[in-house]
Amino acid sequence: MTEQHDALEQRLRIIEDKLAIYELIASHPPSADTAFADYTASVYLQDGVFNRGENLDGAQGVDEIAAFILRPAHEEAIRGGLAHFTGLPLIDLRGDQAVVTSYLQIVQLDKQGKCRQLANHGVSTGYRIHRVVVNRWELERHAGRWKIRRRTLLPVDGTDAPRQLLARGLADLLANR
């Protein structure tokens, strides 16, 4: 009976970890789209890294990462109709560490679009996808909570780097099964 109990405990722990990680990844769009820097600071490790690839600036350290979404340019993007949409993440659990691979769409209100009516939903000029990126989230459990050690995001731009990031997430998952 103890062996069954231990197996059940282990399965429950995996489920709880994955749910907590889903919540962590799902919290990114609302925190970015509201510039809720205190929340952002609460989910990164003190020495966390936010890497946006070669063509966009990133941030290092929790204070710099949290300040990233307080920039006037970010506020301008929010006021312009910015919305982040994340895809369901692929989670590779490794005890007190995890690697998460996911997609993120950055959507913007299309102020120059043609006005269209949608029954029961009013009139809108629509939205456009500004960018799609792939993410690699490297997480660690601290004091019972999952936190971000490093986040790397790369634009889906036809180059090999984002494709390799996605393939690495799948290969890691296979290797750790």
Rank of each mutant, 00 (worst) to 15 (best):
K18P: 12
K18V: 05
K18Y: 12
L19V: 10
A20L: 07
Y22E: 15
Y22P: 06
Y22M: 13
E23Q: 11
E23N: 11
L24T: 13
L24Q: 13
L24A: 14
I25P: 04
A26S: 11
S27V: 09
S27F: 13
H28P: 03
P29E: 03
P30R: 07
P30C: 07
S31Y: 13
A32N: 05
D33H: 15
T34D: 01
A35Y: 09
F36E: 03
F36Y: 08
A37L: 07
A37F: 08
D38Q: 10
Y39A: 02
T40A: 07
A41R: 14
S42Y: 05
V43E: 03
Y44T: 02
L45S: 08
Q46I: 01
G48F: 06
V49E: 04
V49N: 08
V49H: 09
F50K: 00
F50G: 02
F50N: 01
N51K: 02
N51E: 01
G53V: 13
G53W: 06
E54H: 13
N55L: 15
N55K: 14
L56S: 12
L56Q: 10
G58E: 05
G58P: 07
A59F: 02
A59Y: 03
Q60S: 13
V62Q: 01
V62C: 00
V62T: 03
D63T: 11
E64N: 13
E64D: 11
E64V: 08
I65L: 10
I65G: 10
A66W: 09
A67F: 08
A67Q: 08
A67G: 08
A67N: 11
F68V: 06
I69Y: 04
L70S: 05
L70C: 03
R71K: 14
R71N: 07
P72K: 07
P72D: 09
A73G: 06
A73M: 03
A73K: 07
A73P: 01
A73E: 05
A73V: 11
E75S: 11
E75C: 02
E75A: 06
E75K: 11
E75I: 05
E75R: 11
E76W: 04
A77C: 04
A77S: 05
A77E: 05
I78D: 00
I78G: 00
R79V: 00
R79C: 02
G80T: 01
G80P: 02
G81Q: 00
L82Y: 00
L82S: 00
